[in-house]
Each structure stands twice: as structure tokens, then as C-alpha cells.
Nucleic acid binder design. Structure first.
Lengths: 198, 198
DNA sequence: AGTATCTTGGACTATGCGTTCCAAGTTCCC
DNA sequence: GGGAACTTGGAACGCATAGTCCAAGATACT
């Protein structure tokens, strides 16, 4: 293998920029020219490095799951109060529209709504991500029930699924309604729903 | 005004078919040729009747709100148990993926995710629809609290917003995950969250 | 220094898109 | 029956798109 095959650009940075572009404008809303301009590389390099538009989109989606969603799942494994961890998770999602006032929402939800049905690979990636979120929450809920913070009378898996679903709803509402107070109200009700009645 | 201006096609039926097409395939996923083929009318008639693609999409979205969402709001005004009405509402939405196995989801959510940001008119229509849903739920929640079915200790508006958000999440999960049991679990937890503790 | 190998930019291709336009056809009024 | 008003189908237009290709440049090994 010769060593003239050095890339003249930062592949990781290009992927990050592609993720950002797809996140803000969606799949159809992002043209190949947009990508060429924003990533700062030529079409040839884009195709030889990332494959076609579909592959790049999927890579961007995976990168999003790793960088954006991953830390939130780890937050649930934090030692100490599970209820606090879940509260932090939910308030963080409630604050997303404030952090990103451009109404970009969540790339996973955007991808699911725009690409399902019609792109089975993206559909599978989204379903897998929801599954990972559910199992991370399931562990946390079980721990919370053991620690006496969460209501032990509820089925842990149902509670985890409830939280997964609520978070996706917060993503939709955060993008569509853009009233920060609304999501804070929602968080309050949700926490009351899972807390142990004392 | 002369009377040679009779349409040779059923305008209401065409709008229904356009709604169905946008619902299944999204805005960008539906080409004007698709519309011409499915609606059974020519390009000229389409443009002279509905305006351009944006206008037709908005009309289809409004039609959806009237035909699909409207009856659900009225369901909440049903005499008798509010808790039963909310349960029926939620289980109906949980059953949506079974009724439409093609993973079409909800046109309002699809539209919001695909068109926001970038189409302020659609964004406004979606926000208005969420607002109508919230106020319909607010009336129901207040009634349920008066009747002693719902927990009167919770802020009624927060509960309404919670339900709005949860339903949007059920739309996302129903389209992305397609496990009917999952949403039934969610409904159970949600009903427990708002029910009066007896 | 020369050569082989790989990357790069940009021109190029083919296709599909939304929109416009016009001749032909149809209907009603006089 | 003649003419005005309107709808209709289909051709045509300009433009944007995703993807391909190739000459030119850069690098490392002999």
C-alpha cells in the first residue's frame, strides 16, 4: 500500500458538519452542493470518502446518536439519585429549543419522520436508537424502584417506554410550538407520574 | 358570471386524495406528477383549483385537521366519564399503527418535522393545531377534576400540555418502532399519572 | 530524479422537478 | 346556431438535482 493516499481534509470534522447540516435542514432539504460548500471538500472526495448521499446521511445519524444521545444515556447511570438524573435528562430536553432556537429539533426524530417509510435502513437505525434509550431508562427505573425513589408498584418496562415516548413528544412540541414553559410543565407532570407516593 | 365554469372533477375527492398522498409520502416525497396521477386531473386543473404545491399541501393539512383530528377533540366533550374519553383517545392513537400499517404516522407531526423550519405558514398551522388540542384537553381535564375522576391537585393546564406532548410522542414511536404493545404500556402509565388516587 | 498511486477540483451528464403556456374541447347564454 | 367564458390535457421551459469522470497535482518509494 502506497502512502500517497493521505486525505487533505479532516474527515471527522467533515462528518460533524454533515451531521449539523442534515440536522438543521433535513435530508431532502440538504443538496449535494450544500454539502460540498459546507464541508469544504469536493464532490469527488465526498463520494470516495462517504459513499453516496444516503450513506453519508446514515453516518451522520450514527454520529448524532453517539455524540448527542450517548451522553444522555450515560447520565442515567450516574451514581446517586435516579430521580434527579431523570429530572436532569427531561429538563435538558425541555431546554433544547432554547439552546437551538433555529427549531432544528432532534435528528433522530427528524430522520424518522422524513425517511420512514421508504428508507428501511434509517428506520432500523431509529428503532435501534429508541431501543437503546428504552433499556438505559429501564436500568435506571429499576434502580430507582430499589432505592425507593420511584413507585415500585408500576411495571418498570412500561415506565421506561412511557419516558421514551414522552421524550419524543417533547422533541416534536419543542420544534413545533417553541414555548419553553410548556415543556417545563410537562416535565413536572411526568416526574409526578413516576415518583413514589410518600 | 357565466356557467361554463363547471369543474369536470370532484374537488373534495381530489383534496382527500392529495391529503392521503402527502400523508403517506410527505411533501418532498410527493411530486407534482404523483399528484396528477393520483388525483386524476391535469396539471392545469390542479394549479387553477389549488394554486401551487405549497398551497395544496396546506389545504391538505387543514383538511386533515378537520377530518382526522376534529373528531378526536369532540370525543373529549362526550358526556359521561372524562377518564373513559381520555382512555379512548389514547388507545385510539395507540392503535393507529395497526390501522395504518404503512407507517404513515400523523400528517401534522410529519409536516412539522419536514417543513419546520423553512415554511412558516405550515409551522403556524401546526402550532395552531397543537393549541386547539391543548384547549380541548384543558376543558376535559377541568371537568374531570370537578367530577372527581382526575387528580384535582395537579395544574389542569400542565396536565393538558402533558397529554398533548405524550400524544405527539406516541405518533413518533408508532411510526418508528411499530410495536403495538409498547404504546399500550404507555397509555397505562399515562392514565395512572392523571387519575385521582383513591 | 522518476514513476506509480492516490486525492482533488471542477466540468459534465442525465434526469426529475415545479411551473407556465396554449390550442382544443365543452358548456351555457342569446 | 353563434359566440363568449371557462376547463382541460399535454407539450414545453428553465432550473436544480444526484452522481460520474478525467486531467492535474501531490506524495512516497526506488
Amino acid at each position: 500500500m502506497s502512502m500517497a493516499d493521505i486525505k487533505h481534509f479532516d474527515e471527522a470534522q467533515a462528518l460533524r458538519r454533515a451531521m449539523d447540516l442534515f440536522w438543521r435542514r433535513g435530508y431532502d432539504g440538504t443538496s449535494l452542493q450544500d454539502l460540498v460548500d459546507e464541508l469544504g471538500i469536493s464532490r469527488s472526495s465526498l463520494y470516495s470518502t462517504f459513499g453516496d448521499k444516503d450513506e453519508l446521511f446514515r453516518a451522520a445519524l450514527e454520529h448524532y446518536c453517539r455524540v448527542e444521545a450517548g451522553p444522555r444515556h450515560e447520565l442515567l447511570q450516574r451514581p446517586g439519585s435516579v430521580l434527579d438524573a431523570i429530572r436532569d435528562l427531561l429538563t435538558g430536553i425541555a431546554a433544547a429549543p432554547t439552546i437551538h432556537p433555529d427549531r432544528r429539533g432532534c435528528l433522530v426524530v427528524n430522520a424518522a419522520m422524513e425517511r420512514v417509510p421508504g428508507d428501511p435502513e434509517t428506520a432500523a437505525a431509529v428503532a435501534a436508537q429508541l431501543g437503546r434509550f428504552e433499556s438505559a431508562l429501564l436500568d435506571a427505573v429499576r434502580r430507582g424502584q430499589r432505592d425507593g425513589e420511584l413507585d415500585p408498584g408500576q411495571d418498570a418496562r412500561s415506565v421506561a417506554r412511557f419516558l421514551v415516548t414522552l421524550v419524543q413528544g417533547m422533541r416534536v412540541v419543542g420544534k413545533a410550538a417553541a414555548d419553553p414553559a410548556m415543556l417545563e410543565d410537562v416535565v413536572g407532570v411526568a416526574l409526578g407520574a413516576i415518583r413514589r407516593v410518600s
